[in-house]
Design a protein around this nucleic acid. Structure first.
Ligand SMILES: [Mn+2]
Ligand SMILES: [Mn+2]
Ligand SMILES: [Zn+2]
Ligand SMILES: [Zn+2]
Lengths: 141, 141
DNA sequence: GATAATATTGAGAATAATTCTCATTTATAT
DNA sequence: ATATAAATGAGAATTATTCTCAATATTATC
């Protein structure tokens, strides 16, 4: 089901504000955004959208699994559209660039946890920090 | 080298406040603490220690690798003593309990990233969310 | 152990991130 | 078109963190 359907099927209303927030994510694939980013970008579509509304929309969309929280070791929370694909991020500590990383074996990891303890895994959060190719190249120059 | 040595060898002074913060961590092994926690516990040893000083101590000790940041998907940052052992955490979303998890193959992961991209890995952050055994048991009861 | 140089601290102001309150607006079922 | 309740905007309130600056404490040197 798409974002619109998920909002409606849970009894929530599809407001112009929520639509704007979803559109902002769709227009910036692969780029994690924080609430202030989303507010700024959504303002271009809806000049009067409030910051609190953006926070509320992000909370709801996160709950509905339309967007997901991305952990970047920064002050503000970041979010990205949930494409359905399981993935994590390579975060450049120099330019703060974020690159997708798909090589995570969730099943193997969960299985190991299950085998070692009585903990029931729901999800996990993995972020990889280092230097991106571009920053490495410019450091050598 | 121990915490004291690391502080001194980098030209920093070993103050009573920093000692108190280090002691607090040593006295609560395996329990990630946030700045407010550390401040409260350190206050028992040093009633006048300031919160800003705790923040400054945590920043320094993190830089010196005496403590490490732990990601729990909470508002405040959490820290724990760096025992030298590579490990992550199982976080119970019900009781917020935190349990150590040692089954992470850092080398294999870094190798895969290296093979797939030109990203140079420094570190990674993994947290596993779910339900702890105790919470599962009480849910069934 | 006293002295001097300066790193560190405490207090509180300042900033940043997030949440809350409440009157007004808007989406949606009828 | 109308009624009802959900959602919003504005700004206050809260929480987390950083900054400023005068006072204090650590450490090297005597
Ligand atoms: Mn994964
Ligand atoms: Mn690991
Ligand atoms: Zn980079
Ligand atoms: Zn639990």
């Amino acid at each position: 089901m798409d974002a619109h359907g998920r909002v409606k099927s849970h009894g929530y209303r599809m407001t112009r504000q929520r639509r704007a927030v979803i559109e902002v994510f769709a227009e910036h694939p692969g780029r994690p955004l924080n609430p202030a980013d989303v507010h700024l970008l959504a303002s271009e579509k809806m000049p009067d959208i409030g910051l609190a509304t953006v926070y509320r929309a992000l909370e709801l969309l996160c709950e509905l699994d339309v967007v997901r929280r991305v952990h970047l070791h920064e002050e503000a929370q970041h979010y990205e559209l949930n494409t359905g694909e399981h993935r994590h991020h390579l975060v450049c500590v120099s330019c703060r660039g974020v690159f997708p990383y798909r090589g995570c074996d969730l099943e193997e990891l969960e299985e190991r946890v299950r085998g070692e303890s009585d903990f029931q895994v729901i999800s996990h959060c993995l972020s990889i920090f280092g230097y991106c190719g571009e920053c490495l190249a410019s450091a050598k120059a």
